[in-house]
């Protein structure tokens, strides 16, 4: 059967979708006359149809998990980078808190010296600040890292940071506050309170327009 080899080649070319118009004509003409090739062609077509039976199969349930567990460990920085990328707001908040804490801590540790918000009408002896008798300090008074004795009058709030208010003891042996504070007296001597005070102060500065004026 000499016809076969050539015809079968054409059949496969046809099945591959590569056949030209002329080749197809040649094959068709041959098939009209050759029963063997007809049979062959029919069997090939049928084989292909049988092979194309569709079936679906799913991987086991925890397949992906199993694969991921066996992957080599990823570089550590990637974990952080990915976390930061997927939580932009938290990242921004974290960065903010970090900077904020940082500046506060440095502010706290740098300022071990006596600081007084104003010096008018005040006597300063070493680390002791005295509001002398008969004097009136107008406005708020802040004392850091020192002692404060009020014999006169403070016309405003008094804030003691890491400081102590020293009360005079008069002749009767009773505590007498000779001086007067016409406002709030606050004592801040813990890191936490100091932080809190700063936050309040910041908000106060930001939101109180009067301060700006």
């Amino acid at each position: 059967m000499d016809c076969k080899e050539e015809a079968v080649d054409l059949m496969h070319t046809y099945l591959d979708g590569d056949i030209t118009k002329e080749e197809e004509d040649t094959l068709r003409k041959h098939l009209e006359h050759c029963e063997d090739c007809q049979k062959h062609f029919h069997e090939l077509n049928r084989t292909v149809t049988l092979l194309q039976t569709k079936d679906e199969m799913k991987a086991p349930k925890d397949f992906t998990k199993q694969v991921l567990q066996q992957l080599p460990a990823e570089k550590k920085h990637m974990k952080y980078t990915r976390w930061l990328r997927s939580h932009p707001i938290l990242t921004a908040a974290a960065v903010f808190v970090l900077f904020f804490m940082g500046s506060l801590v440095s502010a706290w540790s740098e300022e071990n010296k006596l600081v007084v918000s104003k010096e008018e009408h005040l006597i300063i002896e070493g680390d002791t600040v005295i509001v002398p008798e008969g004097e009136t300090v107008s406005g708020d008074l802040v004392v850091k890292n020192g002692k404060l004795i009020i014999d006169g009058i403070v016309d405003g709030n008094v804030t003691l940071i890491n400081s102590m208010l020293v009360e005079d003891i008069d002749e009767t042996g009773l505590l007498a506050s000779a001086g007067e504070v016409n406002g709030e007296l606050k004592n801040v001597d813990q890191m936490f309170e100091w932080v809190w005070y700063n936050i309040k102060q910041t908000f106060h500065d930001v939101f109180s327009f009067k301060t700006i004026q």
Binding site: M57, A59, P60, F63, T64, L68, E74
Partner: peptide, 23 residues
């Protein structure tokens, strides 16, 4: 770039086909 979690999606996407192919 080294992001392992992105690979999870890749595996999820191809797992059935590749598994079936091997089978």
């Amino acid at each position: 770039k080294g992001d392992q979690s992105a690979y999870e999606d890749v595996v999820n996407h191809f797992q059935h086909r590749i598994y079936h192919h091997c089978y």
